[in-house]
Design a binder for these strands. Structure first.
Lengths: 145, 145
DNA sequence: CTGCCACTTCAAGCTGACTTGAGGTCAAGA
DNA sequence: TCTTGACCTCAAGTCAGCTTGAAGTGGCAG
């Protein structure tokens, strides 16, 4: 009961078959064999795909994830990498929080034009100096929800 | 004293000349004329570039920014769009915060393997259901800092 | 036995925001 | 006047993470 074909994996994981093939090519997952032409996966692929999804959600690239998940069986995830990523997230969160406050203020403030609102101007000036570089890139994403 | 050439604009704004040409092509900025072949910009381009940087930091695409900045002179920024974006940021921040907590826990927890840590497993399972889809994509960015 | 059709491979295309390269122009300094 | 070199245009390349398309294969229902 541990053999799944690609459509079954796709159905259970929500990951498209094309993506599964792509992940296999990249070395992120492995099929345990073939039935004719068709890939056969072990049931634990589902957990592994969840791990990959988690890694992506945390902001790791597929390559980074590949390195962390490299050893078969129990993935040996580098705790330091997790700490580093957590800190990175922390910085991002701070920037986004500042942005959010600024946006809310700008949206609500009574100045006739945004360019006359001191708070907005402060934001603009900060952005001009690169203070928020790469703070977001979030939002206009391939969001499902 | 309001005429700047492209290298001056680049120097003052930190935006590469190639990007300035690209922005002009996209209609995000305008040059006010030419000196020979060379573009000449009005000094207020600097503010406009800051606005563009702000928009990007907030997660707007260049196209969205173009729409908001469309009218010449005072940019008429849609306050509702700002509110929407703020809310979007809020959702992102929440997800990232959850991720961050999870990462920290996983990094510090004493379970022999991550797959035996209940907190980590909860995170993994949540990621598997798509709960964090598009939550990050931040982190491994073109960060300058 | 035969036909269907889900699967396969491989190459190419897509999005967004740019960068890079080849080949051309022209204002200004020597 | 001539050279320099910063600027120009236009096309193509880059990166990540996939998706799409064309053409082929083979297990299984009928």
């Amino acid at each position: 009961m541990s053999a799944l074909d690609i459509s079954e994996v796709s159905k259970r994981s929500g990951v498209p078959a094309s993506t599964l093939r792509y992940y296999e090519e990249k070395g992120l997952i492995r099929s345990v064999g073939r039935h004719g032409l068709k890939r056969v996966f072990d049931a634990d692929i589902i957990d592994r795909l969840s791990l990959i999804a988690l890694g992506q959600a945390a902001g790791f690239s597929l390559d980074e994830i590949g390195l962390m998940l490299a050893p078969e069986g129990a993935p040996q995830i580098d705790r330091q990498a997790l700490l580093d990523k957590a800190e990175e997230l922390d910085r991002t969160i701070r920037k986004l929080t500042t942005m959010r406050r600024g946006l809310l203020h700008a949206a609500n403030c009574g100045a006739p034009s945004h360019m006359e609102c001191p708070t907005f101007l402060r934001l603009v000036r900060a952005a001009g100096t690169g203070a928020y570089k790469s703070a977001a890139k979030e939002g206009r994403g391939k969001l499902k929800a």
